[in-house]
Structures are given as structure tokens and as C-alpha cells.
Write a protein that binds this DNA or RNA. Structure first.
Lengths: 342, 342
DNA sequence: TTGTACGCGTTATCAC
DNA sequence: GTGATAACGCGTACAA
């Protein structure tokens, strides 16, 4: 009765009078097993408080029970929401979450990830944008034999490997809302070049303007890269235009917050003099004054779904609950948008 | 030449003509080793690109090369900064970061953590406030034999197990700044009961007032729990006072943002009618208008130091670079504070 | 349906 | 200093 250390599969086998292998079968609920013995072994397992040793399983199975989160992301809140979603999915399972930031720019990025995956023999990884948009990365996972699910702003992969939001349509609707309110001079602050989300959102903006036959002048589009500072700079340029835009739609909330900052600096009243729209619905969006009208996408749910897809066919029952692959964003109307005064 | 899978310690031993154990000695740089053989083996290791298998090591050593982050934290930004700090510390090491949120309130919390630590056999854990303030948790780590470092707002443990910020002194200085500016009616919005940081900050506030012989009326202290909403509610009560406070010091930035929100809702001009101070220097603090005067604590550095302490005596050299245990916060002066009009 | 023997890749023991 | 040999705890042939 060595109470000091935890019980092993041998203890269970010994007590229940069966072989290791039978216990192993119970653990991995193999179908071919006498129900009597199964129940008996399960009882002993419960009595002894036996839990399989993850290290030993990892060694034998050549596969760790770890879910990796690979990201290279400028947005802290997004990363944390994704972690929350994944953690919800693996709660009460044997899985754990390993966080792995990578450097998207670095030439060694792919090799870094390869080493990480091969060494740790992860069960699977969730890929966050913008690295998730890198097809070579997905291919690498395939080669190594590591499951993966990509998160993104558009469908980049099979349903099995993808969880996407409909950024384009969401921005189209939000822009339509501005148009319905009477805005005609609407400016756009774009996200960084090369980001799929930046492209999708921009396209949605153009969709709405095109449908309303509102021409989009080059001067009404400013470059940004999703940061507060670029939002301020872009807004300063746009607010110098004459006539001034009556609304500015920034491709994310952080830049929209910068627009608000710039507007206040030059004494403009929001939303009377200028309407502002953002995208993300970060916590800050509702905490600033005026609270920001923005687009909310269900990032926690998406991350949870991504993790569930990874775990599909693992759990006890094996109930094939198919997770959705497309998630809809919704417009959150707050006080930063009003009808233009013109 | 089975190039397909990765080389093992056996391959290295075979090629270099020594035994497994000798290779193992090289890997763990045992002191008693002929320098010739060491160099030879190291050469082969490099040639073959051999990297020890973490799963096998974990099994043999009964210890995983994982660093755990145990937290139950309302503040997303803080959690992410801590992750960043830990990741910086373990970059280019064999360690990985595992995230483990816990439910502070739950009666099963200690048992949950125990299971987690015993099962995963973590190398060590970083404990975040407020769970880090739980002495039973630290004791549990000791019992299990899992290294730990606690982060907190005051010294709760030995230097070896602790990384602390000087919240009390930082708030004292910030309050002194308000007093120097001419404020006398200064209100305080406190953090949640039971949080050590809430207590320390409150004490610092009282220290400054006491030294300046400014009496602190009960009505000038409002309860909060570090959330935006409680900041708004507390501010609404404080702003109803007559005479009104000329300054409100909130125990964190999120509540301070709520104060600003409430002030603007009733048409007050900040900082002309009301000065506001916060604590944390979150990204939002600098993005709102007016930008928030606040206290910045070096959370990333603290987390990095915490992880370094965990890893102390592990690395190649074993150079005993002692990490500091106390980190100083600094007042960040922005536009939300001005001299009172009185 | 169940048991035996062995492998997974590494470290620890204890000889030499 | 170095090398057989046995753990570490579990999974998988293959046989029974």
C-alpha cells in the first residue's frame, strides 16, 4: 500500500485481478470487452483514484495531450479571448493549453513551428490570424501529422480545419447602416497590408458603397495597421479634408479609438460633427465616451468551436457533434454614430 | 539511416561509440566526464541534429518541462503581459508555457490545482494575484514538490518564491502629487475586499493623507471591485457629494475609466472640474480623452523575473544571476490631473 | 474476450 | 570515467 505516490495501471490491474492490458482497454474504452470486467475495473479505478500518467501515455502514444495556441497577434484582448474559448472546450478533459507565440516576419518561423510541433508532439494546434492565413503553416501541420484548426476572417480551408467569421458581410451591413442614417462622405481606415481580415473588411465597405452608388475617392481611404497610433494619424489626415467626411469607419476598434482621440484633440464633437465606427467590440469600445458603435464577432465561441473540432472523435461517447465553421458578427449600436448635420 | 523519424539517444550512442548513459551525461552536462568523449559526443549530437525527447525525459525524471501559469484574474491585459514575460524568460529553452485558469471562489480550487500539478508534474508554476495571495496554495506546491513563484503587491513569501511590486509606496507618491497640486478633497475608490493589492493601495492613500494631515471622511471612500461598472457607480455617488471632491483616485485604471465616463455623462470637464487618477497603466489609459494619469508597474519584467527564478540553477552555465524580488512602480503624468479651481 | 512480452526514449543504480 | 541493466507507466503485437 504505497500511498505516497499515485496509483499506476499496475496497481489497478493487481487489485481488480486482471492484466494491465485489460485496464488499458478500459481506459481507452475499447469496444471488445466483457461488460462485467469493465465495470469491475472501473470500480477499482474509482476506488484507487487512478488517473493515467500523461507522460507515460505521451511516450507510448508518441503524442502529447496538449493543445497548442500558435499566434502572432497584435491584439491582446483577442488572444486572451481565444485562450478562454479553448480552455472552455478542454475543461474537464485530459488536455492542457500550451501557448506559443511566433514571429510572423522571421524567415525561421516555419522551422520554429516545426521544431515545436515535432518536439512536443502536440495533439493539435489552433492557428490564429494573421499566421493562420499562411498556407505553408497548415501544410506543415499536415506533413507532421499534427491536427490543426485555423481561425480567420474568411474560409481558407476545409470545414474540418477552419473556423471563420464573415467580416465582409458584417462590414457591409455596418456601412449600410451609416448610409441609411444619411451619410455620404464616409472614410475608411484600413488594416495592415497582407492581413486577410483587412482585405475582407475593406471589400465589405466597398460592397455597401457600390450598392448605394456612392463613389469612393482615393482620398477617403487611409492606411492603418490596427494600432491606436495609426488610427490617430489616419484620422488627422482625413479630418483635414474639405469637405470633411461625416463618418469614419476604422477597420478595428483600436484605430477607431484613435480617431475619437484625434477628433477630440481638434475640438470636434462626436457624434455631432463626426460619426465613428469600429470593429471588434473590445471592452474599451464600450468604456470610452461616447461609447463606440462597432461590430462584435463571437471570438470566444469561435475559439471554443476550433478546439472542439480538434478534439472531435476523442471524447467518451464520440457523439459527432459537428461544430459550425462560420460565425456571424453583429452590429453593436452605441452613441458614436448619428445622422450627419449637412 | 532511418531519416524518417528523429534520432534518439541510441543513435547518438551508436555513432559516437559510447553508451547511452554517457550520452545522457553529456546532455545533462555531468561534471565527471572526459572532455574528449564529451566533445566527440557533442559533435555527433550536432551532426545528427539530435534533440532529447521531452516525453521520455518527463517520464524518467518524473517531471515535465512545463511552466504553469495559474491565475484567476479579472484583468485580461495583466494576464497577457504576464504570459509575455514568462515567454521571454523561457525563449530558447526546452520549457513551454501551460495556462491554467482556476476559480478562486470554488471550494474545490485547491484540489483542482493539486490534481493539475500532480498529473502534469510541472516543473514549476507562476502564481498570479489574487490567487497568489492564498498561502494554502503555496503550501500545496511545497508539499507536492513543485517549484513556485508568487506575484503580488507586497512581500508574501521568501525572495526565492516572490516577486512583488510596491503598490503602497506608489500610491502614496501619486497621492502626494495630487496634494502638491493643491487638492484637499480627494476621494478614493477601493478595490475588492480580500485583494491584497486593494489593501496596499488603500494604505498608501491613507499614508499620504495622514502625512499631510488631511482627514479622510468615510464618505470620500467608495467601494469598487476593479471593474468599469463599479467605477461608474462609485463615481456617481462621489460626484453627488457636496462639496464635490476635486479629485478621485481609483484603485485601478478600469475603474478610473468608469469615473471619467460618469463625469462626462454629467457634463463635467476633466481635468478642469475633476482630476482623475488610476493605477496599472493599461493601454486604454493612454487612449482615452483626456489620457489618464496613472501608476505603471513593470508587470512584464516582474513576470520574466518570476520565470527566471523558477528556472534558477537549470541553464547551461548555472550562473547564479539573482533576479530582484521587488519592483518599483512609477507615476505616469498625463492630462487627467490639474490644479483644482477652488 | 483476455494475457504475455516487448517497445517508447530517457535517466538512475551500481558495478567495473 | 564509463557501461550494462533496470526502472519510469502505458500501449501494441500477437498469442491464448
Amino acid at each position: 500500500m504505497k500511498k505516497t505516490s499515485q496509483p499506476t495501471i499496475n496497481d489497478v490491474a493487481h487489485v481488480s485481478g486482471v492484466s494491465k492490458k485489460t485496464v488499458s482497454r478500459v481506459i481507452n474504452n475499447s469496444p471488445l470487452l466483457n461488460d462485467d470486467t469493465r465495470q469491475r475495473v472501473l470500480g477499482v479505478i474509482k476506488d484507487l483514484g487512478f488517473v493515467p500518467n500523461p507522460q507515460a501515455r505521451a511516450l507510448a502514444l508518441r503524442r502529447n495531450f496538449l493543445i497548442g495556441l500558435v499566434h502572432d497577434n497584435p491584439n491582446a484582448q483577442m488572444v486572451l479571448n481565444v485562450q478562454q474559448g479553448i480552455l472552455e472546450a478542454i475543461r474537464d478533459t485530459e488536455f492542457e493549453l500550451v501557448v506559443r507565440p511566433v514571429n510572423r516576419g522571421a524567415p525561421s518561423m516555419l522551422e520554429d513551428v516545426r521544431h515545436f510541433l515535432e518536439r512536443q508532439r502536440l495533439f493539435g494546434v489552433v492557428l490564429l490570424p494573421p499566421v493562420s492565413e499562411n498556407d505553408s503553416l497548415a501544410q506543415l501541420c499536415d506533413e507532421i501529422g499534427c491536427r490543426y484548426v485555423r481561425m480567420g476572417s474568411a474560409k481558407l480551408d476545409d470545414d474540418e480545419h477552419m473556423v471563420a467569421s464573415n467580416d465582409r458581410e458584417a462590414v457591409r451591413e455596418a456601412t449600410q447602416y451609416l448610409i441609411d442614417e444619411g451619410h455620404k462622405r464616409i472614410a475608411w481606415i484600413s488594416g495592415p497590408h497582407g492581413f486577410r481580415s483587412a482585405r475582407e473588411r475593406r471589400l465589405g465597405f466597398e460592397d455597401a458603397l457600390g450598392a448605394a452608388k456612392i463613389p469612393l475617392h482615393r482620398s477617403m481611404v487611409a492606411d492603418g495597421n490596427y494600432t491606436f497610433d495609426t488610427g490617430v494619424l489616419a484620422a488627422e489626415r482625413l479630418l483635414d479634408l474639405s469637405p470633411r467626411p461625416t463618418a469614419i469607419f476604422a477597420a478595428n476598434d483600436e484605430m477607431a479609438t484613435g480617431v475619437l482621440y484625434a477628433a477630440r484633440q481638434r475640438g470636434l464633437d462626436v457624434p455631432r460633427d463626426l460619426s465613428i465606427l469600429g470593429f471588434d467590440d473590445t471592452p474599451t469600445a464600450g468604456h470610452i465616451w461616447p461609447p463606440l458603435t462597432t461590430v462584435r464577432w463571437p471570438i470566444v465561441s469561435m475559439a471554443r468551436a476550433a478546439a472542439m473540432k480538434l478534439l472531435a472523435g476523442v471524447g467518451d461517447g464520440g457523439e459527432a457533434v459537428t461544430e459550425p465553421s462560420m460565425f456571424l458578427s453583429t452590429l453593436i449600436r452605441r452613441a458614436s454614430v448619428a445622422r450627419p448635420m449637412d
